[in-house]
Amino acid sequence: MPVIVVEVMPKPELLDPQGKAVAGALHRLGISDISGVRIGKRFEVTVDEVTDAVLAEVTKLADDMFSNSVIEDVVSISVHPAPASA
């Protein structure tokens, strides 16, 4: 079945303590060519079929439920058709 992928990231201007912790670990491991890490979320939403109505519904959910616009941005919504041999 097709999957709609929604990606959500903490707003760029806000501190991302999770990413900061990972970046700190990288520095402690001696990795010096990575200057920063930010961590977000990826939602894989399985649907029966991709129609304009379904896409509109998922887009609305991405804004209203999957993300909180006070602290996060929806950075992408992409459609991944079902594999031909599935």
């Binding site: 806000l14 501190l15 999770q18």
Partner: peptide, 17 residues
């Protein structure tokens, strides 16, 4: 209350982690 939009703003992970 912030998630329900009864109050403004949001709460995020403590800055010190």
């Amino acid at each position: 209350l912030t998630e329900a939009h009864l109050l403004e703003g949001g709460l995020i992970r403590n800055d010190h982690g």
